[in-house]
Amino acid sequence: MVGITEMTNWAVDLIDVRKIYGKTIHALRGVNIQVGRGEIFGLLGPNGAGKTTLVKIMMTVVRPTHALGTLLGRPLGHRGKLAGTGYLPEDHRFPGYLTGAQLLDYYAALGKVPRSRRKVNAAKLLDRVGMSEWATTRIDKYSKGMLQRLGIAQALMNDPELMVLDEPTDGLDPVGRRDVRELLLELKSAGKTVFLNSHLLSELEMVCDRVAILVDGLVARQGTLDELTEETVEYRIAFSGDARAIQEKVEALGASLGANVITVSGHDTGKVNAMIDLLRAADLSVESVQPHRFSLEDILVQVLADQSATPVARPVHP
């Protein structure tokens, strides 16, 4: 049993979350994820990895097969704590007969936000997401991006402590995406916690403090961006001239030779110098030496490659 003080350290603390749809679809197979308060946390993974399922379990939309842990310090599934969360589901469908302003009011009333605050927040948020002019237009006249903006406004109506966003930039144009990034950073500076799913890895890199990579229902990697990219750094030495003469020596030292570039993986500056020596000895001129950090995309691709190289045994029954 975890102590009370320990419980409250995390905004989200998921322990051994499992979900089997029907009897055979193992969507989540024991997920452990911790999100600190005031942090922007990104969850990434390929299609069907179970990201949406995990978020739905947090928001009590889907009933887990097994789950421990806490959300805002209360056991997962605690109804009262949902008053402190905002949620933007993936592929949401809002009732078309409502106007934008009516929708915000309706959802916030269900979230027990007092009427006076609903009025103020609706006006403020519609303005914040650039939808003020559309406030009194029926939702069935909205474009996809406008729906998404409204969805984000809706999630903020109760001034939530924790925001859970499933693909928040889905359907948004580049300006809209930048707006969302700014909004997330704003929320962070106001001390709020953000948990988001996204396919757009470059976006996660720009705003997330920490990320987890979910593959096939399991967390493959988790940590700060620095932690994840630490071991995956490489140096690229560009040169001019014909290096075929030294190819064997380069490869013998564990580096790889491409067209006018030698790649040294890892934090090995000794090896980098050895390469430069080799190039200089062969009378080739070194043009540049650049450390190169892997992007999240590289890491994801690498994780996926590792997974397919060593396939995880899929239990048919738990």
């Binding site: 928001m59 704590k81 949902l82 589901p89």
Partner: peptide
């Protein structure tokens, strides 16, 4: 989804 995520 949104409605189920409300405190009710």
């Amino acid at each position: 989804d949104v409605v189920l995520a409300k405190p009710i």
